[in-house]
Design a protein around this nucleic acid. Structure first.
Lengths: 215, 215, 215, 215
DNA sequence: CATGAATGAGTCTTCATTCAT
DNA sequence: GATGAATGAAGACTCATTCAT
């Protein structure tokens, strides 16, 4: 870990219950302020105030504002990653037609659980340190997906990691579009079905027995 | 146009050659500062300095910082939209296997022409006014794609606009991932092929003659 | 209170001794800067500097420059109003020849106690929010004077509030002229006598027993 | 004239008709901007724009913003002064009961002819250079009034200039209060009568034959 | 002469961070 | 440990004034 990364690390581990509660409150507060005020007005004072603690105390937990926001973002991403990890292990060895729906469902469930949070954090992800964090967690998720894909009995991927990257980011795109309101309203009900169709079709181009036409 | 949107409008039109040059310099400078310093440090002073003009002059062209950034973003998006529009008209009435590659190629060409610019503007797109702008241009692009899809002789879409939304944002996802460095390095060479594969597979699930196996 | 007025309200109450001292220092500093530099150069930085605090601290007490100046003006006006209120209650039921001198004396004492302050605040009273504030406090003073006049046993006023308005503003005029240096220097010694004469003469035109000629 | 005063002098005399017209347009524009935007936003650019000329041209006529505003204020004050001068000459040698109403009427007519202008200029009068200008013109008016008073056959003033000062500023006070909205609305109709009463009563305390008791 | 774009010093205001209580 | 007042650097934006066209 270089010094830049070190500067974003929390100051203390939540060894005490109180600490954990305070940190949770800070995260929640940060997301609320982010949502209500925007990143530009998401100040330490406001976050602390909403979390019910003093600014001074905030600095007991995080060395600076960016570290707090990074932590919030990280927790969010790690949650998603865990869900992906889990489903990938669960679907290990299963055929594509089972993998795809499971992956889509898991991703949607994780990402849309708290839409406000997901949406608010896009801005954080675009700021200093955000992209690195996202890239890091993303690569972990891609690795999990790649491992899962590699285990599919009915398909063969030249480079599972590339396929996983494309597959995953092809899922991320529509979900982000949904959260940011770039999608027509009608989509809400059929998003999952569409993503399943998209992913399945894509992965099935790698079916092992290419007796039938492909691509 | 409501007053919020009005606040983001440029102040004067570049009727004179000098104005046009100044505005171009401002856009370029903004993107450079964005890239080198990040959105948080992308200040009017810095932009003006890099553009070789005074802050005061900057404010003769844009009423505020957000308006300038919005203009830069808009120009970028409009460029993309024009490319999409064009290819969609060009592929009108062609079958899916021709549409998909053309669309992918056009999108990649437009979006990756200036990677630095594309990448820098993601942060802007996440800020005040950005999402609205993106949504607006996005919907125009989706409409173009939907029209194209509806004209495909070999497929039938229940709701072309939904399919277009998914298709387009499924393209956007991987490209964004690429620009933000979330993709493995090896992908660069095969991104286009992968996206063509993704898009074709997805759209072909809507093939008109389901004599062959699908999905 | 409408939002415009709300924007001029102080941010925190001086509950602590230190706060009260800081606020007092700010008021004094504001008047000094006003006097030495004029309203146009009465900037928050200069006020804070002279008050011996940082600009940031100034903004902990007042949301903006106008609010600070409004507070200074208000305190001044309220002081005058209190003096007027007091003398009006004191003279309740007394005859005109006692009322007039008492009112003049009280007004002069209050307004000329700190000539520098009184003079400096004229500029503030003419700026955004000033006129409203003055009008408001003025009406309170006029009401007090009107009540006093109505209680005079030796006079009868058709509309005490009109008479009070005229009487009061007729006092304000010369005092303002004095403070702004529009009056010849010789006046200083006899101003009070002249104002008493003016006010008494005016009010006595409303004497109850008009056995003698009255205009 | 010291250098400070010199700096406020117009740059060119209105020898040409066009100059005179432009200057008039500038004055009018200045008052409009003053009224609509307030002194703080009464900028040279805005004034020039409203006057239909360019900023550059504005600087052909006045060396700086303050000079323009001073000129506007001066013209206003000189107009009032001329009216006062005129009525004072007209009433020369007449008794108090004729002087007072004439003076009041003349003053009100002059000051209330363009209420917007009168009101707007109070802010200018409070700024740099304003007070001096006002004091200067005021003293000329007071001199005229004093001369008139001294000529009254029915009164004797120990120091006509003091009486004139008080009398004049006692008129100024209520009129200013009216323009700034500090007076009850009902006053509008009876202001003149009240001021006549006020002034007459005051001046009559100096009646030559004190056969009757008065103050 | 008129024009109005350019200048940049100067304002107000915010906010991350510290530290005395 | 907690608090929140104080700090002051930094940013957005304005505007009087100039001068090339």
């Amino acid at each position: 870990m270089n010094s830049a990364a070190a500067a974003l690390k929390p100051r203390k581990s939540p060894v005490q219950a109180r600490s954990a509660a305070t940190i949770a409150a800070l995260h929640t507060a940060a997301i609320q302020v982010l949502t209500r005020e925007g990143l530009g007005r998401c100040t330490t004072t406001r976050i602390a105030e909403r979390a019910g603690i003093s600014v001074g105390s905030l600095y007991q937990y995080y060395p600076n504002r960016d570290a707090l926001l990074a932590a919030v973002l990280e927790r969010h991403l790690v949650g998603i990653a865990a869900a992906i990890d889990h489903v990938c292990r669960e679907c290990h060895g299963k055929p594509i037609p089972e993998m795809a729906p499971a992956l889509v469902r898991a991703f949607l469930a994780a990402k849309l659980r708290d839409r406000e949070e997901s949406k608010a954090l896009y801005a954080v992800a675009a700021e200093r340190g955000g992209p690195e964090l996202v890239a890091q967690v993303q690569s972990r998720m891609v690795a999990a997906v790649a491992a899962m894909l590699a285990s599919a009995p009915d398909a063969r991927f030249d480079d599972p990691s590339i396929t996983a990257s494309i597959a995953f980011s092809a899922l991320v795109g529509p979900v982000r579009a949904l959260l940011e309101g770039h999608l027509p309203a009608e989509i809400d009900g059929c998003l999952e079905a569409q993503l399943v169709r998209l992913l399945t079709a894509y992965l099935q181009t790698y079916l092992r027995q290419p007796s039938a036409r492909r691509r």
